[in-house]
Design a protein around this nucleic acid. Structure first.
Length: 312
DNA sequence: CTTACGGCCTGGGTGC
DNA sequence: TGCACCCAGGCCGTAA
């Protein structure tokens, strides 16, 4: 599942391979994950990819309109509104999204739902089996409005800002880390990894963390994200970078996905529990549960769930 | 207002 | 070989 390090890895790859290319045409398959499919087909052809950025877990392809096609002749790098230079293709990879260039002659793999023919004979393809991803063409004000409401980038936020944000909230710290309005880009893997490193239980309330603990969490999160980027992200099941290569950081995981295996620090078996509605992996010894928490129970919470028909 | 929780979308993997 | 079930991230509606 692509989180900040995976999307950053992808952005760096695409910067190498598709930056400066012009989009000649658009072919769409299933479109239920695209905000306004017609807008893509109408506005993308002719545009040049002038920047590849990461915004939280989003890929942002900045698109310059075709020369002379706009109402105003040139004016480069302007903040021209409407159909102008600030237009972007926003892509969220969801869980199973892939975005990478292929030779246009190569047959499309199953679940390829968007193809952007480039001016060098290749095709930038979006493939997403589950279509939990999202794609949108956004320009000007609409783009700004979309990006507003996201929290700070975890690699840029200062310790002071981070500590203040976390300690101001009574939600569980795991939920806060996952909340894209608090921090943009953190998902389940890096939330659990940073909590393990900082020795903080995921069910602790943000407001109950000491200043030192919140600072430790900030430091751990940053260090882990930076290391994960160097190792080109985590490939649990199917993350692949722009060249189709898996990352390496999954080898470094200390908590995520390690239920029942020994904690690298103390040897206690890593436990899994549902916190903030998500599977959460933690060391019950290194990461003491908050007082009164029932969340340290058995490994799996097998609850009989007969959910066949519901009475009208 | 803030927080918690269940359901929904989809299909690959798993276990029987 | 088939098939029911689980699970994932984000989002939304509802309840406390």
């Amino acid at each position: 599942m692509p989180e900040l390090p995976e999307v950053e890895t992808l952005a760096r790859g695409l910067r190498q391979s598709v930056l400066g290319r012009r989009i000649l045409s658009v072919t769409l398959g299933k479109t239920d994950f695209i905000d306004d499919p017609a807008a893509l087909e109408q506005h993308l052809p002719g545009r040049q990819i002038t920047a590849v950025e990461r915004y939280g877990k989003f890929m942002l392809l900045r698109l310059k309109p075709p020369a002379g096609a706009g109402t105003n002749g040139s004016v480069p790098s302007g903040e021209t509104n409407g159909d102008g230079a600030s237009a972007s293709l926003l892509v969220h990879l969801g869980m199973t999204g892939h975005l990478s260039p292929h030779p246009a002659a190569q047959p499309c793999e199953k679940h390829t739902h968007a193809c952007f023919l480039l001016d060098d004979g290749r095709e930038l393809r979006y493939n997403d089996a589950r279509r939990f991803g999202r794609m949108a063409y956004l320009a000007g004000e609409a783009l700004e409005e979309e990006l507003r409401g996201f929290g700070a980038d975890p690699l840029e936020v200062s310790a002071q800002q981070f500590v203040a944000r976390i300690r101001a909230r009574r939600a569980r710290v795991k939920a806060l880390l996952l909340d894209q309005g608090v921090l943009r880009g953190v998902g389940n893997i890096y939330a659990d990894e940073s909590l393990w490193r900082a020795k903080i239980h995921p069910a602790r309330l943000g407001a109950h963390l000491t200043r030192k603990q919140a600072e430790a969490l900030h430091h751990a999160l940053r260090a882990i994200l930076e290391k994960a980027i160097v190792m080109r992200g985590s490939s649990i099941s199917d993350f692949l970078d722009a060249e189709g290569e898996p990352g390496e950081y999954q080898r470094r995981h200390r908590a995520y996905g390690r239920e029942g295996k020994r904690c690298y620090r103390c040897g206690a078996p890593i436990r899994r529990a549902i916190v903030a509605g998500r599977s959460s992996y933690f060391c019950p010894r290194c990461q003491p549960a908050p007082r009164g928490s029932a969340l340290t129970l058995p490994l799996s919470k097998r609850r009989s769930k007969q959910r066949k028909m519901r009475p009208a």
